[in-house]
């Protein structure tokens, strides 16, 4: 068995012109990835657990104000600031999937990575949050239930990537474009999130990323994010 599988460059495009800020992605992410509900008090202390959040901005002067929304998750940097600072190599770059992975069993909870992340996309498990009986039935068996003292973040739903890659391999074919859907993409009612392989020119995500509306968050830092945002500035159709 010496099949040559090329490294996938998973990437995501978020169309901010389509995003309505409905938070469906936040909910779907919490369901898919066993993210515990920390509650109001903990969140007020800054201990809320979210792998994706909706940033809200206001445009215009009162009373003519309108909100704009921006979902922000781990940007899966190609040159990630979180990686070199981890003293125990818990935050490592996956050569295979070209994403940034967090190895929970290595993490000792120094929180250095979160402090070095310019996107504030990492969250820390301050406590063991309980999963009482009706809730524990909804836990995803494909995702680790993290315990107290580990850092966690968006994984680009790597369990779904692994599942799709494994299925494709079992059926002896290449993985198709759109076969891997992240939970946030699946839940998005307006289809604002596109996920796929950025290394393939014809994939939906590559085509969207080449749009003139595209930009990346904090591009000037040289982190090479894998998440591309689209925003037209209100000038549509010329």
């Amino acid at each position: 068995m010496s099949e040559k599988v090329e490294a996938k460059k998973w990437g995501m495009v978020v169309d901010l012109d389509l995003c309505t800020g409905c938070q469906a992605c936040v909910t779907a992410c919490a369901m898919e990835n066993n993210i515990p509900y920390t509650g109001e008090d903990e969140t007020a202390y800054g201990r809320g657990l979210h792998w994706i959040r909706i940033q809200r901005y206001w445009k215009g002067e009162y009373p003519e104000v309108s909100p704009t929304h921006q979902p922000v998750m781990c940007q899966q940097c190609g040159h990630a600031p979180c990686e070199p600072v981890c003293p125990v190599y818990a935050s490592v770059h996956s050569e295979e999937e070209q994403i940034n992975v967090q190895v929970y069993n290595r993490c000792v909870g120094t929180r250095y990575c979160a402090n070095n992340c310019p996107y504030i996309s990492r969250t820390f498990n301050w406590f063991d949050y309980p999963h009482p009986v009706p809730e524990s039935y909804s836990l995803n068996p494909d995702v680790t239930v993290r315990r107290r003292g580990v850092m966690e973040k968006c994984t680009f739903c790597v369990q779904r990537i692994r599942h799709a890659v494994d299925t494709a391999q079992a059926e002896g074919r290449e993985i198709e474009d759109g076969e891997v859907m992240t939970a946030c993409q699946q839940a998005c009612p307006t289809g604002a999130i596109i996920f796929g392989d950025l290394s393939k020119k014809e994939s939906a995500v590559s085509q969207a990323a080449r749009s003139q509306r595209s930009f990346r968050l904090l591009e000037e830092l040289g982190t090479e994010p894998k998440v591309v945002y689209l925003k037209g500035g209100g000038n549509y159709g010329g």
Binding site: V5, V92, S94, E95, E96, E97, I99, V101, V103, Y104, N105, D142, V143, T144, T155, V158, Q159, R162
Partner: peptide, 10 residues
């Protein structure tokens, strides 16, 4: 690929 963390740990 076979030593990639994301192969088994996620």
């Amino acid at each position: 690929r076979l030593s990639d963390c994301a192969t088994c740990h996620y």
